[in-house]
Amino acid sequence: MSDFQIRREESESRGRYVTVVDGVEAELTFSKAGTGMIIADHTGVPREIGGRGVGLALAEAMIADARAAGIKVMPLCPFVNAQFKRHPDWSDLLP
């Protein structure tokens, strides 16, 4: 895991992981699909903070929470989908 301070915000149907780096906000958003799955639908890391591993840190926070909660993750976001391909140890979380 990274040293970024990441917080999870959520409502009944949606949520996001968010961090602020050098005053710039980055997020990974998700939708809830029932009680057993979330759909990772968007990762936004502004260019000013790109290349520092911020997106991966957001994805890792989501993965850790999904594992702890025993839920699956559908990676519709292209970035999250690419991370699933790079991290075969995450495959147990795929629906």
Rank of each mutant, 00 (worst) to 15 (best):
S2Y: 10
V45P: 00
R14M: 13
G15S: 03
I6P: 00
D22S: 05
H42S: 04
T35Q: 15
S13D: 12
A61W: 02
M37L: 09
A26K: 02
R52E: 08
G50H: 12
S2F: 08
A64F: 08
T29L: 10
R8Y: 05
A61S: 12
V24Q: 04
L76T: 07
D3N: 08
L56V: 13
R47E: 11
R16M: 07
G55T: 08
E27Y: 12
V73Q: 04
E9N: 08
H42F: 01
D41S: 07
A33Y: 14
I38D: 00
E27D: 04
R47K: 04
V24P: 01
V54S: 02
M74D: 11
E60I: 10
N81C: 14
A57N: 11
C77N: 02
G34P: 12
M1N: 10
G55D: 04
R14S: 13
S31E: 14
R47Q: 06
I63F: 11
G15Y: 00
Y17A: 10
G51P: 07
A33D: 14
G44A: 07
I38P: 01
T19H: 01
E27I: 06
A33N: 12
V80Y: 00
K72V: 07
F30P: 05
P78F: 03
G70C: 05
F79L: 03
A66N: 12
A66V: 02
P78V: 10
G44S: 11
S2V: 06
M1K: 14
M62L: 13
R47H: 07
S11N: 04
M74F: 13
A68D: 14
F4P: 00
G70H: 02
E10D: 08
F30S: 05
V73F: 02
L76S: 05
A64Y: 08
S2N: 10
L28T: 08
Y17L: 09
G70R: 03
M37K: 09
G50V: 07
D41P: 01
E10Q: 13
G44F: 15
G44L: 13
R67S: 10
M37D: 07
I49N: 00
R47D: 09
V54Y: 01
E27T: 06
I49H: 00
E9P: 11
V73G: 02
E27W: 11
I71A: 01
I38K: 01
N81T: 11
N81V: 15
T35A: 14
K72I: 07
G23E: 00
V73A: 05
L56W: 15
G50M: 08
C77L: 05
T29C: 12
T19D: 00
I38R: 02
I38G: 00
M62Y: 04
P78R: 11
H42N: 05
A69K: 13
T35P: 15
A61R: 09
A26E: 03
R8H: 07
R7A: 05
V54M: 06
I63D: 13
A57Q: 09
